[in-house]
Write a protein that binds this DNA or RNA. Sequence first.
DNA 1: TAAACTAGTTTATATTATAAACCAAATTTA
DNA 2: TAAATTTGGTTTATAATATAAACTAGTTTA
Lengths: 93, 93
Amino acid sequence: MLKPLNPLLHSQLRLGIMSILISLDSAEFNHILKETAASKGNISIQLKKLQKAKYIKIKKTFRNKYPLTTVSITKVGILAFENYVKTIKQYLE
Amino acid sequence: MLKPLNPLLHSQLRLGIMSILISLDSAEFNHILKETAASKGNISIQLKKLQKAKYIKIKKTFRNKYPLTTVSITKVGILAFENYVKTIKQYLE
DNA sequence: TAAACTAGTTTATATTATAAACCAAATTTA
DNA sequence: TAAATTTGGTTTATAATATAAACTAGTTTA
């Protein structure tokens, strides 16, 4: 029997965001924008969903008078990601 | 930059079906039903989508007077699956 | 001072996955 | 033997999702 995939992580963009964050202390909104090539609106929404699940932390500040959104992964997020990786590998081999 | 994931394969059930078929000559509808635990309706629809993309072949016959749907992966399907695996690995490590 | 740009958020839409309802034929049960 | 149940699905309806388009608020440039 195939184990179900965590639906919160089985989304191209959310998985991409988590993938970026797993290997970085933190990432700025614009970094995610460039790495994923998704729209700003889509990123904004998916960040909120990840935050609601406590997979990431979002910090809103200013830099040179411009808004700056900085994102980082939480312990819960790391565990969920690692678990997703384990599960999807069952599908891939 | 993260490469986009083939949306036809980035679906839990369709990926599951392809995963089953990649290591089998063919599978019956009921086998997929048991392995994935998805509903019959959902399986029926996802099989059609995979067939439309020529990722699988569907054969409809009878066995002991009952309908029998047998599914197998195509060459095109194997290539698409292999490519998907390569791409998603970029997200997982 | 008007236009364009930065850094996002909110709203609307189109697609998707999924479940519920349905169907036909075969079989079992009362 | 008629009614109920089971098998093996398909079709239809709905809820969730991803995504893009439109919008906001402030800043810089011409």
